[in-house]
């Protein structure tokens, strides 16, 4: 009788790509649910639209490349990309925004590089950057949360806005985003950036009416939703702890340095952690297994690097939020990071 002396782990399960993608999508639900609750059901319409476009674009390209279609579509990666794009764009953006973004992500960023596992860049973020650069007006038209809006937006109103750019009563998105008293309402990061430019200190801004109208609370809740989903992903070991932890730690440290240096001109670390796309980025975007660093040290470095760029752009750059730009810049550094952080082989020379 032979005893097999194998070292631990003794019990192993391997998840397939599609299982991982499904888990990630499930863990996105709390964040998406909160976002749709605060910003309108049109968020879900965008996801639906993006999903359909992503699957058909992927199927079309796979047919051109003569690859198995059904099996590849089943891995769910195209669907996940579509969801990430749909939740990062403003819920009431016209339909062609999300269509262009999804087509670009699937066809150019993913399939032209060789499909799942070959893409250098995170498809969803590349698409987001394309849209932000090409259509700045539509991409920055974040409406305030529903309860703060002067008009009731019914489901049909939102559907109509998505398709034609106007509600049933004929209001455009630009009109909707202006309150009755004429204050334009933007996201908290937007408001902070613009008011700092007009000479207010951050303490004044956080107390001001226009900041409170900027649906700061809603964004905070959405971030907490993504944090919750991300925590489940961590607990399920779908993602490794290195990237989210080093990224969030990096955000805290770097924004604290800026905050400590000039508290009047920079947001606090807590503000940075819970606004914009910080939590969505930390758990769902940076951790994309294809375009992120793969070694332990590399992942830590990757998270820190992106955090540094995010804080830098948010505090001194021209854009209010920077997760997408930072992730793309981080993606570019991945080959270099991986090259220099290869772990030494056990027993090999250092």
């Amino acid at each position: 009788m032979a005893f097999i002396n194998a070292s631990s782990p003794h019990q192993r399960t391997r998840r397939s790509s599609s299982q991982i993608m499904v888990l990630v999508m499930l863990c996105l639900i709390p964040g998406i649910a909160l976002q749709s609750y605060f910003f309108g059901i049109s968020n879900l319409l965008q996801i639906l639209l993006a999903g359909i476009v992503a699957l058909s674009a992927e199927a079309f390209i796979l047919k051109l490349r003569k690859r198995p279609i059904i099996n590849t579509l089943k891995d769910g990666s195209a669907l996940l990309t579509a969801i990430l794009i749909a939740i990062s764009i403003p819920p009431l953006a016209p339909w062609w925004i999300v269509v262009i973004g999804t087509l670009f992500a699937i066809i150019f960023v993913k399939q032209l590089y060789g499909g799942l596992g070959q893409n250098l860049f995170n498809p969803a973020m590349a698409a987001y950057v394309l849209l932000l650069i090409s259509f700045p007006v539509q991409m920055t038209a974040w409406l305030p949360m529903l309860s703060l809006q002067p008009f009731e937006l019914s489901f049909l109103d939102q559907l109509n806005t998505l398709l034609t750019g106007q509600t049933l009563d004929g209001y455009s998105v630009a009109q909707l985003s202006v309150k009755i008293d004429g204050l334009t309402m933007a996201t908290p990061l937007d408001t902070l950036k613009n008011s700092l430019k007009s000479g207010f200190t951050s303490t004044e801004i956080f107390d001001s009416a226009s900041f409170k109208a900027a649906s700061a609370q809603a964004i905070l809740w959405v971030n907490l939703g993504f944090l919750f989903g991300g925590a489940i992903l961590l607990a399920k070991r779908v993602i490794h702890w290195m990237i989210p932890i080093s990224f969030l730690l990096g955000i805290t440290i770097f924004s604290f340095i800026a905050f400590a240096y000039q508290p009047d001109l920079n947001g606090s670390p807590l503000f940075h952690l819970l606004s914009g796309a910080t939590m969505l980025g930390a758990f769902f975007i940076l951790t994309d297994p294809v375009s992120a660093a793969t070694t332990v040290k590399g992942r830590l470095l990757y998270g820190f690097l992106i955090a540094f760029i995010v804080v830098l752009i948010r505090n001194v750059g021209g854009y209010p939020d920077a997760i997408a730009f930072a992730v793309l810049l981080g993606n570019m550094c991945v080959p270099l990071i991986d090259y220099y952080t290869q772990p030494k082989v056990y027993g090999g020379k250092a």
Binding site: L130, I133, V137
Partner: peptide
């Protein structure tokens, strides 16, 4: 709303 990317250098590369 013009498709700015096409007018910018990255669009030229693509």
């Amino acid at each position: 709303t013009s498709f700015l990317l096409a007018a910018l250098p990255p669009g030229a590369f693509i």
